[in-house]
């Protein structure tokens, strides 16, 4: 039994550290003993070196910044587009029935295949990455918002209508918040998708960004660089998740933890 939640928490963190050190140690040791091929799997000390090189060269933060920017732009674009599309389909079931097959096909399609097209259309810069990220986020938001709009308890709608609400009142006080609840509560997974979209886009063609660095290292058959890039991405994900948890708490104060 833990005396308090806090001591339990430190125990978990301690065990996580031990596990990480064990794995890294085994990795380093096996590579130095030539049990594994360094060419393919590199080793932690070389990866740390590489990371240090990137940091001292002074362009790591530029790459990370651009990936973040693409992620955020793609996320916002996807949310707005998903919301609008969901509203249109909600108010016009005819439109939804007409476009439903297209929506389903587009959603089922692996988005990576659009990468080359987007780069062709929108260039090597931020736009193509944001679009790719948005194309992933859009569907999550679309389906969530649509069910959020449709699944408001009928009695609640009756009640608010009987208060004298117009269609706009109903949308603003009931339907839209109900849909946004869903968007907010799936914030972390949507941003995760946006990041994946941005990195895939960079990987396919870009001049900067973490995905670009990974692609560059891969081009040089430099597994150390690939691992260093992955490490940078992991750090970004950790930081983003931490921040998003706070944002979530701010945006959805009614959720009791």
């Amino acid at each position: 039994m833990f005396r308090s939640r806090n001591s339990g928490r430190w125990l978990v963190i301690g065990m996580q550290l031990v596990l990480a050190l064990l794995l890294l140690g085994a990795w380093e040791w096996s590579a130095r003993r030539d049990i594994t091929f360094q060419f393919f799997v590199s080793r932690p000390s070389k990866i740390a070196d590489k990371l240090w090189q990137w940091i001292t060269a002074g362009d790591l933060h530029i790459h990370a910044f651009h990936t973040t920017l693409e992620t955020v732009a793609g996320f916002l674009l996807g949310v707005v587009a998903g919301l609008i599309l969901a509203l249109v389909c909600f108010y016009s079931p005819l439109v939804y029935r007409v476009i439903q097959p297209a929506v389903d096909v587009a959603n089922a399609m692996p988005r990576a295949v659009f990468g080359p097209l987007f780069i062709l259309w929108f260039g090597l810069g931020l736009t193509s990455k944001a679009m790719l990220a948005a194309s992933l986020v859009l569907f999550i938001v679309f389906f969530g918002t649509l069910s959020g709009l449709q699944e408001v308890e009928e009695n609640v709608l009756h009640k608010v209508r009987l208060m004298g609400a117009s269609r706009l009142d109903l949308l603003l006080h009931v339907q839209l918040p109900s849909a946004l609840v869903w968007v907010f509560s799936s914030l972390r997974s949507s941003v995760g998708f946006a990041l994946a979209g941005a990195v895939i886009g960079e990987y396919m063609g870009a001049g900067r960004g973490v995905g670009f660095q990974i692609a560059l290292s891969q081009g040089n058959l430099d597994s150390t660089g690939v691992f260093a890039g992955l490490l940078v991405l992991s750090m970004m994900v950790l930081v983003m998740n931490g921040l998003l948890r706070r944002v979530e708490r701010l945006l959805t104060p009614w959720r009791v933890s």
Binding site: E153, N155, V156, H158, K159, V160, L162, M163, G164, A165, D169, H173, V174, P177, S178, L180, V181, T252, W254
Partner: peptide, 28 residues
Amino acid sequence: NEVGYVFQSDGLLAWKTVKENICLPLRI
């Protein structure tokens, strides 16, 4: 118009505080 409606579930808006829920008809 001028009808109040209460049903089995409480039907409150989860994203509004108690105060905001109560004053909803007045806002509308």
